[in-house]
Design a protein around this nucleic acid. Structure first.
Ligand code: FES
Ligand code: FES
Lengths: 164, 164
DNA sequence: TGATTGCAGACAATAAATATCCATAATAGT
DNA sequence: ACTATTATGGATATTTATTGTCTGCAATCA
């Protein structure tokens, strides 16, 4: 089976699409999957993560589907990333400094975190800070000014057709 | 989102240990593996990546092993990360914006990169900048001041025993 | 020469990501 | 009340990435 891509990219795109939706309207997981050309059942899992994180609001039944749970300027890209990735760090330290000849040394001598992990985590904080600084509203803004009117029109028409 | 494997932690620790080595001395892959309590044959793969990236210098035969290829203040943490992870980006965009109802639109309408990928890559640049700012010498410095003398002594003695 | 070590590639095992399926519950329209 | 639509959560299968091992070869040193 074809390799489709990653949940994070899907979730971010869905979030931005939902941010551009008219108030009161919703899009189903199936519609969002078709729009992005990804497997519907699997995308539904990603959307569930967003729903659990209270980034999107879900409703079952006909006319159900997803919409943003709060205004687009209250949702950062980091919120979406953490929701999908479970907030796990990029760098995972397994405390290898305690092994080998050091494994007999008492834990009290290793109070602080490893200096190497420190560096990696500081960098990760810089990454997160950058993601926290951008909201879905910011991206929506840029999309409106930077994406060609042709693409914008096709997507808008298609979304309108789905939400009638 | 790509997460970092354990090889990175191993490689970083090895690099810092080599940075603290007396001039002219070397440590074998087996010794470094024992010091960190990791599988020797697999650690050797990581060390080969560092050697290919010309971060460490390798020598075969008895008295062989690894030492830094340049001075510790010329090697950034980013250099090691890129060597081990192959310089691949954390966020991989699969251009899902071109699928679904948009797939019939000509490629010329999609000239620039996706606004979402832009955000992710800007954040990644912040991460890389932070890693580029720190050198092995910086870490060595911090280790000397922050790690307990007990641990420092055990490691130093053990390294001395390996390099006689 | 024999022992030690790094190198490269092939291979096997394990973990993680990707993808599907199903049973259940909620909702809207009839 | 009935049906069609949709989200949810769990179970499961499939594919890919990571982790780990093995072997043959070349370089080095005593
Ligand atoms: S022990 Fe994990 S990064 Fe040092
Ligand atoms: S198409 Fe890949 S991030 Fe938008």
């Amino acid at each position: 089976m074809k390799r489709h891509g990653n949940q994070l990219e899907w979730a971010l795109h869905c979030a931005v699409v939902l941010a551009g939706l008219d108030a009161g309207k919703r899009l189903s997981a199936g519609s969002l999957a078709e729009l992005h050309g990804v497997p519907p059942k699997y995308l539904a899992k990603a959307l569930q993560l967003l729903a659990n994180a209270e980034i999107v609001n879900s409703a079952p039944g006909p006319k159900g589907g997803y919409c943003l749970a709060k205004s687009a300027d209250e949702i950062s890209v980091l919120d979406v990333v953490d929701a999908v990735e479970g907030g796990e760090p990029l760098f995972r330290c397994q405390e290898i400094r305690r092994r080998g000849p050091c494994q007999s040394i008492g834990a009290k001598h290793f109070a602080k975190s490893c200096q190497i992990a420190d560096v990696m985590w500081r960098a990760e904080e810089a990454w997160r800070a950058e993601l926290a600084r951008v909201t879905l509203a910011d991206i929506g803004q840029r999309v409106l000014t930077e994406v060609s009117v042709k693409v914008l029109g096709v997507v808008q028409d298609w979304v309108d057709a789905q939400t009638t």
